[in-house]
């Protein structure tokens, strides 16, 4: 009898602590109000939205607006003072850091997967094949062991950090074919390839879901474990940047994303936490 009471007490304490621990992360926003504007990289959006919802639910005086546009847009709008935090899916360049006095905060590591429609039977693609497909030398699925049909290549615009990293690490800087279709965000990439049985594209691991099929490259599957061990090479940090030292809401938001609770959220989004 006494034992059960003890166990119950322990449970209660654990529960209390966990509740307290939970509140710990969000307590950063105590006493703050106003609007926090974020834009740029599109891989970040889902995860930051989840955090934003939690924060806004608890503190109705805080509004968090999250937009896309791509990493380049994030930096540009940040420099112009239009937003408080600029998302980038690549490290900002030295020139960008100097020009806008950037403070850079890496909060997650993300992989970039090559995706096809789930109707395709292909499981693996070699780097050479990948380069040929994206540079327009291979144009038929037959050459990859598929049906006799044109390959529809999807790519992102030059503002995209995902494109920059994929081009450098996945395509070894080989040019992307001019016939490629352009989509505006990671989410749009998912919709495009999910809807096109002959499509191929590349996407943030955190944004990919079962509507598209990631391909192994040279036998290595793009999973977060393989990114963690360094076996899967096409990976990049996800960054939040501020102009000068962040204050107020921006400071609290960055601290929250780097707190244990924020990092748990990052993990839940399919990224690798940094802490």
């Amino acid at each position: 009898m006494k034992k059960t009471v003890m166990i119950n007490l322990c449970l209660l304490l654990t529960l209390l602590f966990s509740v307290y621990g939970f509140a710990g992360g969000l307590d950063l926003f105590e006493g703050l109000s106003g609007t926090l504007r974020i834009a740029g990289g599109t891989a970040h959006i889902k995860c930051e939205m989840l955090a934003g919802k939690r924060i806004m639910r608890r503190f109705p005086g805080i509004t968090i607006i999250i937009g896309g546009g791509g990493s380049g847009v994030g930096i540009k709008q940040l420099c112009e003072g239009l937003i408080d935090i600029g998302n980038t899916g690549r490290a900002p360049t030295a020139a960008e850091i100097e020009r806008c006095n950037l403070n850079v905060y890496k909060f997650a590591v993300d992989g970039i997967a090559v995706i096809v429609n789930p109707q395709r039977k292909i499981q693996n693609i070699s780097t050479a094949q990948l380069v040929n497909v994206f540079s327009g030398k291979t144009t038929n699925w037959k050459e990859l062991g598929g049906p006799d049909a044109t390959i529809n290549v999807y790519t992102r615009d030059s503002e995209s950090g995902t494109r920059k990293v994929f081009w450098k690490k996945g395509l070894k800087r080989a040019p992307i074919t001019r016939r490629a279709n352009f989509v505006k965000s990671n989410a749009a990439m998912k919709t495009a390839v999910a809807g096109d049985p002959l499509g191929i594209g590349y996407i943030s691991l955190g944004v990919a879901d079962s509507s598209v099929k990631p391909l192994a490259i040279d036998g290595i599957y793009p999973s977060i474990e393989n990114v963690k061990t360094g076996k899967y090479k096409i990976a990049r940090g996800l960054y939040m940047n501020t102009r000068g030292k962040p204050g107020g809401l921006a400071r609290a938001f960055i601290d929250y994303m780097l707190s244990p609770e924020g990092q748990e959220l990052v993990k839940g989004c399919g990224f690798l936490p940094v802490k």
Binding site: G69, G70, V73, K76, D157, S158, E159, A180, F182, K184
Partner: peptide, 17 residues
């Protein structure tokens, strides 16, 4: 064939410095 219009081009590239 896939193609790009002037307006779409402006929308896609607007961020360059």
């Amino acid at each position: 064939d896939s193609a790009r219009t002037l307006t779409a081009h402006i929308a896609l590239v607007s961020a360059a410095d």
